Simulated assay, not measured.
Amino acid sequence: MTQLQFNLDMDLLKDAVMNSNIDAVVKSSVVLVLNEYMEKERDDYLNVPAYERSGDRHDYRNGYYERDFMMSIGKIKLRVPRTRSGEFAPTVFERYKRCDKAFALSMLEMVINGVSTRKVKNIVEELCGESVSKSFVSSLTAKLDPIVKEWANRPLNTTYYPYIFVDAMYIKVREHHKVVSKAIYIATAINAINQREVLGFRIDHAESFEAWQEFLGDLISRGLQSPKLVISDAHSGLKKAIKKVFIGTSWQRCTVHFKKNLIKDMPKKNIEEVKIDLKRIFDAVKPEDARTFKDEFVARYEDNSKLEKVIGNLEEGFDDAMQFLNEPIKYHQFIHSTNSLERLNEEVRRRERVIRIFPNTQSAFRLVGAVLMDYAEEQEKKKIIIKKD
């Protein structure tokens, strides 16, 4: 058989092929080129050509497996080379975003640890072939984990962030042969050009003053300066930690959560007008107007016994919920609630729903970090566009 000889820019070739719309008649050519490229990658990885002996080899060839690969020209079947240790991975399949790699790794770990559902095992076989080894998974984590860890611990002393958002969400993790609930603490901020940035995250046990204090203290140790406002829900431990860690910082209670709590305590019938009057308070632009509308609300409904609890809670939480009105008007729509952070949480939740139960805490840390890193990169792209404009 004649040996195939060619000299191509493989990065350019892969990019062109993966983004092409060429007809199905050339699929065989694409398969030929990609198979040959993967063979070359394995040779480079092993540090020795086929049928040659060398004391410098890194591993041994172990045949091939077939794998379907979806491309813009349709599904093709590739002949993927493998090594005895299972650590070799062709770069052809590295099209996935960082968070998708972390997502796949979580599923791989579930399969390796014998805790996967049939659905997850089927997805893993689609991604990686018939089976995966522990050494293969270890090689992937060794590449991705340091990247996530370095980003999570990067310095925060290059920019001042006047408005910081913090929230926690819960996930399930296998730990010591049982399933436990853990909290993911996430902090984001608005920078000088009103773009969102992720400051940090942490995975710990249930929310508490001590856990929040440690998380916020870690942000300070990385160079974060005390902001003007911290926007969050009304968790008592978090409020206490904000006061303890950040000097001279005000707490902004999320108005969306606050309004929902007030409405939840209202009667279920004939309450539309009351809701409109309540909304008027939170739609105010100036702090003095908000206070006036609040006083009018109290005066109008204070004799209604069914609204006694609502009025009491409104009076108690009013000042904390209106801190944002003391800031420039251009920021009001962004800093009155934690909605933006909750949308980011949903990006994490979208992948977490498939995993359901993380095989370990490091797996959860890796996936959450990768999702947040990809989000941060998207925000950075927007920042560049704004600067150009």
Rank of each mutant, 00 (worst) to 15 (best):
T2N: 12
D11Y: 04
D11I: 03
M18R: 11
V25S: 15
K27N: 15
V30E: 05
V31Y: 11
V31D: 02
L34Q: 04
Y37F: 14
M38W: 08
E41S: 05
R42V: 03
D43W: 00
Y45K: 03
L46K: 01
D59F: 04
N62Q: 08
Y64E: 06
K75N: 14
Y96Q: 09
K97G: 11
F103W: 09
N113M: 14
V124D: 03
E126H: 01
F136E: 08
S138P: 00
S138D: 11
S138C: 07
S139E: 06
S139W: 03
A142P: 00
A142D: 13
L144M: 15
I147M: 11
E150M: 04
W151A: 03
W151Q: 05
N153G: 07
F165Q: 06
M169R: 11
K178Y: 06
S181N: 14
K182G: 05
Y185C: 03
T188I: 10
R196P: 03
V198M: 08
I203K: 06
D204N: 13
D204M: 06
S208V: 12
S208W: 09
S208Y: 08
F209C: 00
E210P: 01
F215N: 02
I220T: 08
R222E: 03
D233K: 10
H235Q: 13
K239P: 02
K239D: 02
V245G: 04
G248T: 11
K259L: 15
L262K: 07
M266T: 04
I271C: 11
K275I: 15
R280M: 12
A284H: 09
V285W: 07
A290C: 04
R291Y: 06
T292L: 14
D295Q: 15
D295A: 14
I311Q: 10
E316A: 13
G317I: 06
D319V: 09
Q323R: 13
F324E: 02
P328I: 10
Y331A: 05
S337R: 10
T338P: 05
L341N: 08
L341Y: 07
L344F: 12
L344I: 15
V348D: 01
R351Y: 10
F365P: 00
Y375E: 12
Q379E: 15
K381D: 07
I386V: 13
